[in-house]
Amino acid sequence: MADFNGEKRTDGSRRQQHNKETGLPLWQCVVIDGDEDAGRKEIGVTVKFAAKYQPVPPENKSGFPWTPVEFVGLTALPYVDDNGMRPRIAWSFRATDLVAPGQGGAKAGPKAAA
């Protein structure tokens, strides 16, 4: 994610944005809903990551033309978007990692003994 609040470099590029709390670089990916009935505003969302290294999606073994993923530590933060003709509730999605479906529990750490 480019830091649009920071100064431009001499070549015109911008530095990468960093998380204000952790200092880690910020990354983002666009997630697309494969539902043919999804509306134009529902078809995709952006998920942001604060991580030392760029998150890499798992290998696509699904047979679908897109790669199914599971987000680890996914949070949804509501905010008021007042850039349009009238304010609306919008969402900011953040995660700590993305993994193959069903592998999120393995990334979350050891499970407690029952």
Rank of each mutant, 00 (worst) to 15 (best):
E42I: 05
T96G: 09
K52S: 07
G12R: 06
K52R: 11
A108M: 13
G105R: 13
A50T: 07
T22R: 04
A50C: 08
S13A: 11
M1S: 12
S13R: 14
L77T: 14
P110D: 05
A113V: 13
A108W: 02
V72I: 09
V31P: 02
G73F: 00
G34H: 00
L77H: 10
G6I: 02
R86C: 05
I32F: 10
S62Q: 03
V72K: 02
V45G: 04
V47F: 00
E59N: 07
Q103K: 15
T10L: 03
A51G: 08
S92Y: 09
P55K: 06
R86I: 05
T46D: 10
L74E: 05
E59L: 10
W91C: 01
D33C: 15
A114P: 14
W27V: 04
W91T: 09
I89K: 02
A2G: 10
K48C: 00
I89F: 02
T10P: 07
V72Y: 04
S13Q: 12
D11K: 05
A113L: 10
P87L: 05
A76I: 05
D3N: 15
E21Y: 07
G73W: 00
C29D: 01
T22E: 11
N19I: 03
P78K: 01
P25V: 04
G63N: 07
Y79W: 12
G12Y: 06
F64K: 13
A90C: 04
D35C: 08
A113T: 13
E36L: 08
R15L: 11
F71V: 03
R40F: 09
L24H: 04
Y53D: 15
W91R: 06
V47C: 05
K41Q: 12
N60H: 02
P110N: 01
N83I: 01
G12D: 10
A2S: 13
L74W: 05
V30T: 15
Q54D: 11
F49L: 04
K111S: 11
A113Q: 14
R88L: 07
D82L: 01
I43M: 14
P78Y: 04
E21V: 10
L26W: 04
A106G: 02
G84V: 03
T10V: 09
G6A: 15
P68N: 01
G102T: 07
N5P: 00
G6H: 04
D81I: 00
R40E: 15
P87Q: 10
E7G: 14
V69R: 11
N19K: 08
K8A: 15
V69Y: 08
F64R: 12
Q16P: 06
N83K: 06
A112Y: 06
N5Q: 13
K107Y: 10
P58V: 04
W66V: 09
P68L: 02
S92E: 14
P58R: 04
F71N: 10
N19Q: 05
G104K: 06
L26E: 15
S92N: 12
M85E: 15
P101F: 01
A50R: 08
A108Q: 15
G23C: 03
P57C: 07
